[in-house]
Amino acid sequence: MPYRGRILATGIGLLFNILRYFYYHQYLGLPFYWTFFVLTAIFLSIAWWAGKQFDKVKYLSERDPLTGTYNRRTVEEYFHKATKISDLKKQSLGVIMLDLNKFKEVNDEFGHQKGDELLIQVATALTTFVGKHDLVARWGGDEFVVLVDNMQENTADDYVKELQQAITLRNAENFPNVEASVGYSLYPQHGKSFQKLVQEADAYMYKDKKEH
């Protein structure tokens, strides 16, 4: 969970206490007492607590509660920011759609709790595999979407295969029969809108799924 809210709130609280000191004890010339530090500590504690609540709400609003990856709304918002950066750098942005094969069988045979465990492990494998400027989100059910910064068209197929292998290896011990079907599209080569690129990647993914 990020600390932005806590840092900002504490900084404002600290600034308030500095201004309070100069106003009462420098400008007005009132005597300085040790209780000033007690009040400062109280103000800063309240500011830290308020900032923590803000960080918690913001984190939960952006994340999938089960896997901890980003949610659908956040990935769409991030896409628009990422395309602007890609345009400036004249680079491609990859949109990867991923769907687990035989996920229904896992739920039917072992129960939904085991299915949730699989989704968490897949999410961990994805976040471990991708780069620091990439984004992993749960699209819904057993589907994930990954935005890949500066994804090269001539190496995209190799990247996808490595990603599939990373998921299989991660789950080999507990879920040996689970694999992932993956499809991708590239901005701006295959489209400029997020919906168009998702459709292209989705079609590619289901083609891969039929082959398995």
Rank of each mutant, 00 (worst) to 15 (best):
M205F: 00
Q199V: 12
K102H: 13
A123Y: 08
T40D: 12
K132R: 10
L98A: 00
G141I: 08
V178F: 01
L93H: 11
T168L: 10
T83L: 10
D149C: 03
T69F: 00
D108Q: 06
D202K: 05
W48P: 00
T83D: 08
E162C: 11
I167T: 04
T35W: 14
T35V: 12
K90H: 12
F22H: 13
F144C: 00
R138H: 02
I96R: 03
Y184I: 08
K192A: 05
L8H: 01
E211Y: 03
A166T: 07
E62L: 12
I46E: 04
E76A: 15
Y206D: 01
V148N: 04
K84P: 01
Y159F: 15
Y204V: 00
Q26S: 12
D108S: 05
F43G: 10
R20N: 14
A137G: 04
K207D: 00
I167R: 08
S92C: 14
D202R: 03
A47N: 08
K84I: 07
T128W: 02
Q113P: 05
V198F: 13
G29Q: 14
K58A: 13
E179P: 01
A180V: 05
G13N: 06
D157Q: 12
F36W: 13
L93M: 11
H212M: 08
F43M: 14
I120W: 06
D149K: 08
V145F: 04
L15N: 02
N174L: 14
K209F: 00
S86K: 10
W139V: 04
V38Y: 11
D208E: 09
I96M: 03
N171I: 15
E62A: 08
L8V: 05
T40I: 09
E153Y: 03
G111D: 09
Y33L: 10
L186Q: 06
F36Q: 11
V160H: 03
G131S: 05
I42T: 13
R63H: 12
T127M: 12
Q53I: 06
K90S: 13
K132F: 01
D116F: 02
T40M: 15
E105T: 04
L8S: 07
L197A: 12
K81L: 11
R72N: 15
V182F: 01
K90Y: 08
D55Q: 09
N177T: 12
F194V: 11
Q189F: 05
N171C: 15
I96L: 06
E162M: 13
N174V: 11
Y27E: 11
V106Q: 03
V178T: 11
